[in-house]
Write a protein that binds this DNA or RNA. Structure first.
Lengths: 211, 211
DNA sequence: AAACCTCGTTTCCTATAGTGAACAGCGCAT
DNA sequence: ATGCGCTGTTCACTATAGGAAACGAGGTTT
């Protein structure tokens, strides 16, 4: 209950986190998009209202654009932000791909309440997002708000026992081996109730963008 | 300046693009998150490395943060960018469905080589098909032909050890906790190699081109 | 080959984002 | 009350992003 405890825990987690966002080759990505459309800097300038020089500097990582600048970009280029940030690796070929993840070798992605391990992150352009999660949260009020995202989610408890809070239902106890499928636009949150932190496997659908 | 803006607008309209993107109340959103966690500006400052004053101004929309600042925010707060940008996100359509399956209570569906247990079969119209499988096969030649279906498949070994045969790759040994994601149009087949029959959890995508 | 073009980069200069310090407001303990 | 600690805001200054114009490298025309 004491906010300090939660705060301290969260701080520790935050401090130990790796910088998983930092590369963010925004300039590189912008250049890719521009060249893919065969646009010149002047074209993009006209579309976005940003100066040629500014665009050049952004592409060469000489400056870090303002958020308003980013908005002008996504506006003028007719793309959305995830598209601007998403890794460039595109593979139109959708036959025979595969992506192995050995136990514990996924890409870790900690948050104060969960410790995610993304499971097949080598593969872009996939329609499901699988990840294993250690549920660190112990009480519902550790969540500032509902977790919520488009699409559907399948979840199986691998270890321990959890309580699944959902926006429209009573909390549901799930033990090892139990599974559930739900619309993930409905707010949801997990807390561990077993002695050890529970481990769950989740698979989310990826929203198909309409462009 | 206004000339460029008008020109830009005209270009966008001519190109058939949507008008402006949402106002993007980033400051408001940040304040929501901060207060929801019961953090003070100082707390957030420590987490993100940004000055109190800067955070205050961002919250009150007095400045437009630099992209590096946004990165520090999402890093320090342990959230990702979509979460920072999409505050309200109300339910668009079918949502709130859920389908619970207790351990061992799925719909069984035996074959000579596999013993499937369909996991969330109450729910129609879902985009993923999850099922648990006991791999009875012990040798590859027990399969008359490749298993093959449209879409993609995610698979995690829950128990035992298997060999995954695929059309275009060498057989792959997978032990408990290992997982793999692959295009399921590529022929595939599982055999148990552990003493006990292995158990795997699979999730397949459902074909999207159905009318 | 010189005189354009057009593209991307670079050079100023200004506008503004980011910072530390000072400030005012509030609760709490002497 | 007075003082202390902590909050969020505002000020003054520095750092840096954004814009207009100059530059320099290729290409095309004469």
């Amino acid at each position: 209950m004491t906010a300090t405890t939660d705060q301290d825990a969260a701080l520790r987690i935050a401090a130990g986190r790796k910088p998983f966002v930092e590369p963010l080759r925004l300039g590189e990505r912008l250049k890719e998009i521009r060249l893919a459309h065969q646009w010149t800097l002047e074209d993009v300038s006209q579309r976005t209202g940003l100066a040629r020089s500014t665009l050049s500097k952004i592409e060469n990582d000489q400056i870090s654009p303002t958020f308003t600048a980013v908005q002008k970009l996504i506006n003028g280029l007719g793309i959305d932000l995830p598209q601007l940030l998403s890794p460039p690796r595109v593979q139109p070929r959708s036959m025979g791909r595969r992506d192995l993840t050995r136990r514990g070798e996924g890409q870790r992605h900690p948050t104060p309440t969960y410790e995610h391990e993304l499971l097949s992150c080598e593969l872009a352009q996939k329609r499901m997002i699988p990840f294993k999660t250690i549920v660190r949260a112990r009480a519902f009020d550790e969540f500032s708000e509902w977790v919520r995202h488009d699409g559907e989610e399948f979840l199986m408890v691998l270890d321990g026992e959890i309580l699944l809070y959902t926006e429209y239902y009573e909390p549901l106890a799930l033990a090892s081996g139990d599974s559930i499928y739900f619309d993930s636009a409905m707010g949801h949150a997990l807390v561990s109730v077993s002695d050890a932190d529970a481990v769950v496997l989740s698979v989310c659908t990826r929203g198909e963008s309409s462009t």
